[in-house]
Design a binder for these strands. Structure first.
Lengths: 319, 319
DNA sequence: CCGAATAATACTCATTTCGAGTATATATGT
DNA sequence: ACATATATACTCGAAATGAGTATTATTCGG
């Protein structure tokens, strides 16, 4: 391998927390530049593993101690690491391969230059908790129809139709977050598409808030992975306070999944699975009957095969 | 980013096929050196994406046209990319970050220098189709008991006990392939451990056939991913001939999962899910009633949410 | 041609899980 | 006391699951 084969490795992390009903991601925002995930170069001389490099970098940049982390995906696409403005760290010519990570935390203090932002700012079509987002029928589907019409030939038109149906068709699969973002990117419904290709923004509006580099793609990957993992591993608890009511737990799951769940069945599920145990203490709500405070039963990590909070029944409205 | 931050990217692929009852992986074997997955450097100047780099490299090295591919994981651990013998391509000091891929194929022709080998040669404890592999009780668990005993303190001993229970305890989770390999690595039950650390091989024997670099780890990751994906995406069909009997399909799933399944329920499952359709033609078996030949219903990729071949009931013996 | 062996396919049945409720209990504010 | 809000318990039919038994279509050895 010669020196010309060498590239820089960039590490980016989608650091996720849930505050009440809002799933949030930690972003670094400088004036004039798009929001970014905390990111930095991997220093092969200093670090033994990619993950230790990430922890060090994030620690320095955000004063954050990462708990649960998981590698997401390694992106190496040429052209999708274009900064919006000039950026001395990543100049033209230096090829950057970016390794995305997901991290979960319950700490919520902010560091300088960073802030928590609800992740649905970036991917607003993903939040179905109250209702199907109006932009899907209002903006996305009409624009995607044009995208089919503009296909160079009948075959690609067919492929596009299929993808549209899978992503935004009758049945909503909450896990296809990345596929949806990529489809909107290719269809030019997202600012990054114009930035990366050097084209002018088209007639149709771009959706959601853009991010630096391919960070929105990494965020989409993170959400997709988290939504999937939720169902077969008890990862939500990484995001909860040590004790919580069952409704708080449900709201957290709903926030992440972007869906409403059936309350009675949800509690049956977590109880049957032995995921939680009562503390005997109770919450003091402003209104209504106090709820018992539960804690995560850490033992399940050792006991069961693959316990998770299955989503089960979905409701249009909170119940 | 300065030049010192740069690293080489190595791409490795676990290319998988199933022949009859044997799940196989394509390996490159030179005399004197351990088996390796097809691998090569990523050339950032020539390739637009990591995956296109992989396809090009694999094409050149094995004359193989990859069909379904999926990125697995990016490993960057210092010390785990040590070649067995001298290897001019990866000299000491050059840090290599290796991106592993899974590819599925039904072509079975071999290229020069490559051959198909059953993947259970490398991970023999993963095949539970006939019975629980004798080496688990005979070799692995006793050696792991020593591993607990040798723990530096009570806390790590506890952690090790838990991991052992999760990996090799009463209930077998066929997806924990990587966790098991990593545990055996750390416990010194696998040749790569001694190679990477420069220690002499211990008293207890090492298990399975070793591979070059971290390729056995990538293979373990590939199997784990494939076993998981099997259940919720119709990926088996990438490995099947255009038409097949239901038993052939079942045998392929069993080969991948390393488990036996209940025949009648398996066919009910694939039928109900609409994964296959009969062709009206029949197989001509040496013995027994001829079975109808089925084909994969490609339409399901567009229709259903997440169809896959769920494993369902498990049998000790083929039924 | 008969019957054993082998495999495919059909059908049954109890149990569990799921989805969607209704019913009841315990708070607060007026 | 009562309206409202929330928690929690319980019910019930539908569907999925696990483990069979029963029947059918072949080949092979006499």
């Amino acid at each position: 391998m010669s020196g010309e084969d060498r590239v820089s490795i960039g590490l980016s992390a989608a650091i996720v927390a849930v505050e009440g009903e809002q799933p949030s991601v930690l972003v670094v925002s400088h004036e004039g530049s798009a929001d970014a995930l905390p990111f930095g170069p991997f220093d092969p001389a200093q670090q033994r593993t990619l993950e230790s490099g990430l922890r060090k970098w994030v620690g320095e940049q955000t004063k954050f101690d990462l708990g649960y982390t998981e590698q997401l995906y390694t992106f190496g696409d040429k052209g999708r690491h274009t900064p919006a403005g000039g950026d001395k760290a990543h100049q033209a010519g230096a090829r950057v391969v970016s390794v995305g990570y997901l991290a979960l935390t319950r700490q919520v203090q902010e560091a300088p230059e960073t802030q928590w932002r609800g992740w649905y700012h970036y991917l607003p079509w993903e939040d179905w908790r109250d209702a199907k987002p109006a932009m899907i029928d209002g903006v996305i589907l009409p624009a995607l129809k044009k995208f089919v019409k503009n296909a160079p030939n009948a075959e690609t038109a067919d492929l596009r139709r299929e993808r549209i149906n899978l992503c935004f068709g009758e049945s909503w699969d909450e896990e296809r977050v990345l596929e949806r973002y990529e489809l909107l990117y290719e269809a030019g419904l997202v600012e990054e598409f114009y930035r990366d290709s050097g084209q002018k923004t088209g007639k149709s509006p771009t959706l959601g808030t853009a991010m630096l580099y391919d960070h929105r793609r990494i965020l989409a990957t993170a959400i997709a992975r988290l939504r999937g993992k939720l169902k077969y591993r008890p990862v939500v608890f990484e995001l909860m306070a040590p004790t919580f009511t069952l409704l708080e737990l449900q709201r957290a799951v709903e926030a992440l999944a972007g869906l409403r769940l059936h309350k009675q069945n949800f509690r049956r599920l977590v109880a049957e699975q032995g995921l939680v145990e009562g503390t005997g203490k109770f919450s003091a709500p402003a209104r209504g009957r106090p709820a018992e405070l539960f804690r995560f039963r850490r033992e399940v990590l050792k006991e069961r095969q693959a316990p998770g909070v299955r989503l089960g029944a979905r409701r249009a409205k909170p119940g």
